[in-house]
């Protein structure tokens, strides 16, 4: 079971952070955000912070899954988990990059 978690974890983390950032963007663009008396600058800052957090978590997981403590003992599975860890890191940067480049709520 732990072997499967090693395989499933990296991209599941991507999915979680991806959904969370999308949810945050929805919140930033909703009336609730203005209701909290926050402006769009705060919204942008929150989104960028979320992205940085997501990417660092992803990188941390990648390192952990290749380390002695959490890594797999089976070489084939270890390689698959490495590939998926890198894939998830790329996915995080690739899919969350819009928070840096795009207008907030247009």
């Amino acid at each position: 079971m732990t072997e499967l978690l090693r395989i499933a974890a990296p991209l599941s983390l991507w999915l979680a952070s991806f959904s969370a950032v999308y949810g945050l963007e929805g919140l930033v663009c909703s009336d609730a955000w203005t209701g909290l008396e926050l402006d769009s600058g705060a919204g942008r800052a929150a989104l960028v912070a979320a992205m940085v957090l997501a990417v660092s978590l992803q990188a941390g997981l990648l390192v952990a899954l290749q380390g002695q403590r959490f890594g797999s003992g089976v070489p084939a599975l270890r390689r698959i988990s490495l590939v998926l860890g890198i894939a998830a890191l790329i996915a995080s940067v690739w899919t969350l990059l819009p928070v840096m480049l795009m207008p907030l709520c247009l």
Binding site: Y22, C29, L96, V99, M102, L104, C105
Partner: peptide, 9 residues
């Protein structure tokens, strides 16, 4: 949906 949201997807 705002364009940034669409951009993620």
């Amino acid at each position: 949906i705002p364009h940034m949201g669409l951009a993620f997807f």
